[in-house]
Nucleic acid binder design. Structure first.
Length: 277
DNA sequence: TCCCAGGCTCTCT
DNA sequence: AGAGAGCATGGG
């Protein structure tokens, strides 16, 4: 996407394109990023990062060259041409208006297990509280690393009981988290294989987990497997689609449905889109 | 305070 | 198959 410079304390993305830190890291797709004095701090794939803008560049502080190639290019979806996607969908005037506001979001390719777990927690919940539960999960059961705690593995959670999760204060979702961990750690649900399946088949496989329905499965596949044809429908999207695209998603957006879904989701929330059902 | 939150399961028709 | 209640908890 851009020229990359390796610097002493991190990586510099020269003239970072279609990459708003705020829109990408705080649009409800990932829950472990926080802003402080203009910089964004977070932990992903067991590593701690600080990101900030330097003019038109983005600095990924804490990333070495090897991790950049092995982890961060994929995590930040840096090889995808978002300009081309925005151009393609802008043939529709509503999508153009939406992407004018949200087209600097990049879809993060998160760890599959973390995405699964995060979106199990997200059900019938609000974003601030989702973040709190996930942080408590990491503090209680993750590994201490420089800068915080890693997201705990499925194996670690599988060794726990519902009662052990009480400190998370996640309510009825605790039993779902335990079920997911046991099935993933035990191999009954093979996340690696699921990421290789087609989207519909993969969703079916994920829904063998208690508490995983179509929406949680779709989010897991979009944000945890990079399946950009996966289209999560939550209350915001359902209402936004009724108001904006009652005849369905425009044809030009179908190949990128998942990405466009995130644009619409963010747009709906930014504009506090009002609906009369 | 009271409504509702990036839904899903269970039950009843 | 489809509709509706209930769910834990706490943010706004």
């Amino acid at each position: 996407m851009t020229e990359v410079k390796i610097e002493t304390n991190g990586i510099r993305l020269k003239n970072a394109n279609r990459f708003s830190l705020a829109d990408t890291l705080d649009c409800g797709q990932a829950f472990r990023w926080r802003e402080e004095n203009g910089a964004w701090y977070g932990i992903a794939h067991g590593k701690s990062l600080k990101l900030y803008n330097d003019g038109s560049d983005i600095i990924i502080e804490g990333a070495c060259a090897k991790d950049y190639d092995d982890i961060w290019v994929r995590y930040f979806d840096l090889n995808r041409d978002y300009d081309a996607i925005v151009a393609a969908i802008s043939d529709n005037s509503k999508l153009k208006e939406i992407s004018d506001m949200t087209g600097n979001i990049r879809i993060l390719r998160q760890d599959t297990w973390e995405a699964l777990c995060s979106f199990i927690i997200s059900q019938n919940n609000n974003i601030p509280r989702i973040k709190g539960i996930i942080e408590r999960m990491c503090e209680n059961f993750g590994d201490k690393i420089d800068g915080g705690y890693s997201f705990p593995s499925a194996q670690r959670i599988a060794a726990l009981t519902v009662d052990d999760l009480a400190p998370l204060r996640c309510g009825f979702r605790a039993k779902y988290i335990i079920d997911a961990a046991k099935k993933v750690a035990g191999g009954e649900v093979d996340l690696g294989a699921i990421c290789d399946m087609d989207t519909a088949e993969a969703a079916e496989a994920l829904m063998k987990i208690k508490g995983v329905g179509p929406k949680v499965a779709a989010c897991t596949l979009l944000f945890g497997c990079g399946k950009i044809d996966s289209f999560p429908v939550d209350v915001w999207i359902r209402r936004a689609m009724q108001v904006l695209f009652s005849d369905g998603l425009p044809e030009s957006a179908v190949p990128y449905a998942g990405i466009v879904q995130q644009y619409i989701f963010h747009y709906a929330r930014l504009t506090k889109l009002e609906f009369d059902e």
